[in-house]
C-alpha cells in the first residue's frame, strides 16, 4: 500500500436532521473506521448521533462549534499540529463578511496557523493567499444555505506527510450518483 502519511478527514456542516436526512450513501461507504488518523470538523453536527459517527472514524477527533450547535462545551476555535503544519479550525460564521478571505486572513494571523479550515458557506474550496492555505470542506450532506451555497455534498481528505500535503476534494454528483475528486498539492512555506 502506498504511504499516504497521516490521513486527515475534513468535514462539517452536517445539519442533520434539520436540513438533510443523511450523508449520501456513496460518501458513507468511503467514511469508514481505521482509515483516517484525524477528523477535523467545522461543526454543525447538531446531534449526538453525528458526533458518535465521527468519533468512530478516527482516534483524534476535533470539533468546533457551529452556529446551529447547542453544545456549550464545544470550542469556538482551536489549533492542531499535524505533520509540520499548524492547522487552525473554526466554523466560520464568526468571521464576517462570511467567506471573505481577507477577513479569514485576520483569523489565520490570530491563530498563527499555516492552514486555516473553516466551513459555514457550504461551498468547498482550497485557496492560497499570502502564504496561508484556506480550506473549506463544504457541507457533507449538501445542506441548504440561504446564500445559495449547499446542494453539492462535499468533504476533503488531507494526506499529510511531513512538510507536504495532498488535498483531495470529494464532491457528490447527485444526478450521476457519482463522486468526483480533485487534487491539490502543496508544501509548507510555499
Amino acid at each position: 500500500m502506498a504511504n499516504f502519511g497521516e490521513l486527515v478527514l475534513v468535514i462539517g456542516d452536517l445539519h442533520m436532521p434539520q436540513r438533510a436526512a443523511d450523508i449520501p450513501a456513496k460518501f458513507k461507504k468511503m467514511l469508514v473506521p481505521n482509515k483516517m488518523q484525524h477528523v477535523l470538523c467545522t461543526g454543525n453536527l447538531t446531534t449526538r448521533e453525528s458526533h458518535d459517527m465521527l468519533r468512530n472514524l478516527a482516534p483524534n477527533v476535533h470539533v468546533v462549534r457551529g452556529d446551529f450547535d447547542d453544545q456549550q462545551n464545544l470550542p469556538e476555535q482551536k489549533t492542531v499540529m499535524i505533520g509540520a503544519f499548524k492547522i487552525g479550525l473554526l466554523h466560520g460564521h464568526q468571521v464576517v463578511p462570511w467567506g471573505s478571505l481577507s477577513a479569514l486572513a485576520m483569523k489565520a494571523r490570530a491563530l498563527d496557523c499555516d492552514i486555516l479550515i473553516s466551513g459555514h458557506t457550504h461551498e468547498s474550496a482550497v485557496t492560497r493567499k499570502d502564504g496561508i492555505w484556506y480550506i473549506n470542506p463544504g457541507s457533507v450532506t449538501g445542506a441548504y444555505s440561504p446564500t445559495g451555497g449547499g446542494d453539492v455534498p462535499s468533504f476533503i481528505l488531507l494526506a499529510v506527510q511531513g512538510e507536504k500535503v495532498v488535498c483531495y476534494c470529494y464532491k457528490y454528483n447527485e444526478a450521476k450518483d457519482s463522486v468526483e475528486v480533485s487534487k491539490t498539492e502543496f508544501s509548507k512555506g510555499e
Binding site: 452556529d67 456549550q72 460564521h93 464568526q94 464576517v96 463578511p97 462570511w98 440561504p146 446564500t147
Partner: peptide, 17 residues
C-alpha cells in the same frame, strides 16, 4: 450574555449577506 454575543455575531453576518 453568551447567547446575546452569539446572536449578535450572526446578526452582523446576516446583514452583510
Amino acid at each position: 450574555s453568551k447567547a446575546q454575543l452569539r446572536a449578535l455575531v450572526l446578526m452582523v453576518g446576516t446583514l452583510l449577506s
